[in-house]
């Protein structure tokens, strides 16, 4: 009897070990599968893009076809850079943020203050729907509203509006979630000191949730940085550095598209993509850092 029990236990533990190993192996395989695309992308971008990255890349505008062709023929690196795209992207992100942040904070706080109310739920659903609208459609809307309606031509403003509409649902959601995480007792402390409602929001709630709000804003910015389709329909692009929001303007993703369409400038596709990816990644890391300090 006793020996039988022992053998049974042994079989059992073998089976358990095998199960553990199988499970562990599956996890390793799946993890590798998940991580390999990102590793391959980074590898590809570094190998193909790094050689174009120098001071000129950040300080000069894109070369014309002839300059690029000459360089390629001589086996040199392509002169010029993406200064027009970088400045255009920054300009539009700043303008989009100026539009989107105040509106989203207001709506997010409104949703937080009106939990469970019908109209708040309606607005929350509309926000979700907005998040699902393809970005190219938002580009079309901005084209009709701004390009045709306001600036009478392609403009950075139109691009900013398209990006702002994309940012809205992201910041609204993160604002509401952040506010929910602040203990209600903090709000009560303000009220008990006779602080008026709007000052409690501005001076107590927003500072208390600052990191959370900031994280949401940064993530929404990093989300729209790479948007190409809506910008094609709204800002068109520009070969020069432009800070006039009523004029066509370049942007990094637009330039990537332009470089891609020019056989002589293929190398710039990789360096611009490398830059854009590094930029987005940095913003994401900063956002993570900030939100980690929050919790």
């Amino acid at each position: 009897m006793e020996t039988k029990v022992l053998i049974d236990e042994k079989d059992n533990s073998n089976w358990r070990e095998l199960k553990n190993k199988l499970f562990f192996g599956t996890v390793v395989v799946l993890a590798t599968l998940t991580i390999s695309p990102i590793l391959l992308i980074v590898y590809e971008l570094l190998v193909k893009g790094l050689k174009q990255i120098n001071f000129d890349f950040f300080l000069k505008v894109a070369p014309d076809t002839f300059q690029a062709m000459t360089a390629v023929r001589n086996g040199e690196i392509i002169p010029g850079g993406i200064a027009n795209g970088i400045t255009g992207t920054l300009l539009m992100v700043v303008v989009a943020s100026l539009i989107a942040i105040p509106i989203s904070l207001l709506i997010g706080i409104f949703l937080y203050e009106n939990q469970g109310k019908k109209y708040a739920n309606l607005i929350r659903s509309l926000t979700d729907i907005l998040q699902g609208v393809p970005s190219v459609v938002l580009g079309l809307i901005a084209y009709i509203w701004i390009v045709q309606g306001v600036t009478k031509g392609f403009s950075a403003l139109a691009g900013s509006v398209a990006l702002a509409i994309m940012m809205l649902p992201l910041i609204i959601r993160s604002t509401e979630e952040t506010m929910k995480m602040i203990p209600i007792s903090i709000k009560e402390a303000g009220a008990a000191l006779g602080v008026p409602y709007h000052k409690i929001i501005l001076k107590v709630m927003i500072p208390s949730g600052f990191s959370g709000l900031m994280t949401g804003i940064l993530l929404s910015i990093s989300r729209v940085l790479g948007e190409t389709a809506p910008l094609m329909l709204t800002t068109l692009g520009s070969t020069t550095v432009n800070f006039n929001i009523t004029k066509p303007t370049s942007a990094v993703p637009l330039q990537i598209w332009e470089f891609y369409n020019n056989p002589n400038m293929i190398d710039l596709v990789w360096s611009s993509s490398l830059f854009l990816m590094a930029f987005v990644l940095t913003l994401n890391i900063i956002a993570k850092r900030i939100s980690m300090r929050f919790s």
Binding site: E188, A192, G194, P196, P207, S208
Partner: peptide, 20 residues
């Protein structure tokens, strides 16, 4: 309420100093 709450203060069940 601003004036009232200056004259009638309140302390809560859980300490709630402003965290920021």
């Amino acid at each position: 309420t601003t004036k009232l709450r200056r004259k009638i203060g309140m302390v809560f069940q859980r300490p709630n100093p402003f965290p920021t």
